[in-house]
Design a protein around this nucleic acid. Structure first.
Length: 408
RNA sequence: GGAGGGAUACCCAAGCUGGCCAAAGGGGGCAGACUGUAAAUCUGUUGGCAACGCCUUCGAAGGUUCGAAUCCUUCUCCCUCCA
């Protein structure tokens, strides 16, 4: 079997590591226990979490043992990394609920029953720590002089940084020590924004235990231009279908930039690299095939084959012509609602296509709204029962956003 | 604890000798054109509403004034220097 390190490397996961050569050697000769921590700051994982998740799965498939560490404890503090402002403190109830959500989601991807993969929660050891003991055992190993030079804190030194957040690195570092002791965990991975925190744990374990452990950071989900992916202005792309529908999830990937397709295929799918490279080098508009594969594969991985197929069918129906499909987002009204007609602005707001009447007005004025592919020209257009054929009416906003209105 | 500086719309950032400020500019977003459901580019738009007008908004609460993002008071938070 190929060295898992090489697999990650070839697929473009690796950003930086502490002793890459040594680590590669270790991964080549024995099953290594490794971990990634996930702070429970929201009720669902996001598309951005797919990179660490995929990274873990590649190692898992190569016979190494992953620990999915839920941040029930660390989230109490809140990682300042990459944040320009103070994080909002979350209540323990919310954190617990988020942890449960993460637990459910991870369980969909990995089987934790046979011991080949582990799910832990750092609340188990962080919540009851004794401050004095902790400071004397762990705190003494951290140099504030050094911490102040870390990239993570630099920006915050201007904007403001509380001791609560400043101490985050200690808790995450302690996690590594704890996992080393409990599970002989030798490697911590994480997004590149976690580099400082990972180094903290790496050094702590080496100092306290005198054992060789490693840190490795993975690429963040970014576009070719370096901006964050998995976020739209409308919000984050979530893995929970309640928050981001399978169709929207599919569409997000279907619309990635040409320049990002190959990298995304390598990072977010299990397709062999030869295939990834072939798809990524398709010329001109043929690259759309690669985007379809990307969207389908990742949607399948996250939402299952059935949902992926539906999303794909919907997309093809809408963009391939016809413009009709059962699976697009829809809103149902009672038939009487349209008896006297509903003005277009109300309809836009009711369906969520516009957040206010003013926004709807702008959309219509700019020619961005169509009913069954007929552009709406008048601001006071009244939608009546006559506009529905077979009780449905397709509203389109812009070029890509479809919504089905049904009356019954 | 003391002395200064700051808080403006999704973000950054002007304005702060009171009216011409729903508030410049940039970014981002949305829409239109061009396209391949791409990028780049160009154009429009970007608080709300019963819309040539009205209402709410410039950290919070009060006050001065015919009129305040702009002046005064108190408070909250942040930054810098001193202790």
């Amino acid at each position: 079997m190929r060295n898992a390190f090489d697999v990650l490397d070839e697929r473009g996961f690796i950003e930086q590591g502490t002793h890459p050569e040594e680590l590669r050697e270790l991964l080549g000769k024995e099953s290594v226990t490794f971990y990634i921590g996930f702070d429970a700051t929201a009720s669902s994982l996001t598309m951005g979490h797919l990179i660490p998740l995929m990274g873990m799965l590649h190692l898992y498939r190569a016979g190494h043992r992953p620990i999915f560490l839920l941040g029930g404890g660390t989230t109490m503090i809140g990682d300042p990394s990459g944040k320009s402002d103070m994080r909002q403190m979350l209540s323990q109830d919310i954190i617990n609920a988020n942890v449960q959500s993460f637990r459910r989601q991870f369980s969909k991807f990995v089987n934790f029953d046979d011991g080949s993969a582990i799910m832990e929660n750092n609340a188990n050891w962080l919540l009851d720590l004794n401050f004095m003991e902790f400071m004397r055992d762990v705190g003494r190993h951290f140099s504030v002089n050094r911490m102040l030079t870390l990239e993570t804190y630099k920006s915050r030194l201007e904007a403001g940084l509380t001791f609560l957040e400043f101490s985050y690195i200690l808790t995450q570092s302690y996690d590594f020590l704890e996992l080393f002791r409990r599970y002989n965990c030798r490697l911590q991975m994480g997004g590149n924004d976690q580099w400082s925190n990972i180094i903290g744990g790496y050094e702590l374990v080496r100092k306290v235990e005198g054992e060789a452990v490693y840190g490795l950071t993975l690429k963040l989900l970014t576009t070719n231009a370096g901006t964050k992916m998995g976020k739209t202005e409308a919000g984050t792309i979530w893995l929970d279908s309640e928050r981001t529908s399978a169709y929207d999830f599919y569409q997000y990937l279907r619309n990635v930039d040409d320049a990002d397709v190959e990298r995304m295929l390598a990072l977010l799918t299990f397709l062999p690299m030869e295939e990834v490279r072939r798809l990524g080098s398709l010329p001109g508009s043929e690259i759309n095939q690669a985007k379809e594969v990307l969207a389908y594969e990742v949607t399948k991985f996250v939402h299952g084959e059935e949902e992926a197929a539906k999303a794909q069918a919907t997309a093809k129906a809408l963009f391939g012509g016809g413009g009709r499909d059962e699976n697009m987002p829809s809103t149902t009204f009672a038939k009487e609602t349209f008896a006297a007609g509903m003005d277009i602005l109300s309809l836009l707001v009711e369906t969520g296509l516009a957040s206010s009447r003013s926004e709807g007005r702008r959309l219509v004025q700019q020619g961005g709204v169509a009913l069954d592919d007929q552009r709406v020209e008048e601001i006071d257009r009244l939608v009546t029962v006559q506009d529905f054929s077979r009780d449905t009416l397709i509203i389109r906003k812009g070029k890509k956003v479809y919504h089905r209105v049904v009356i019954e």
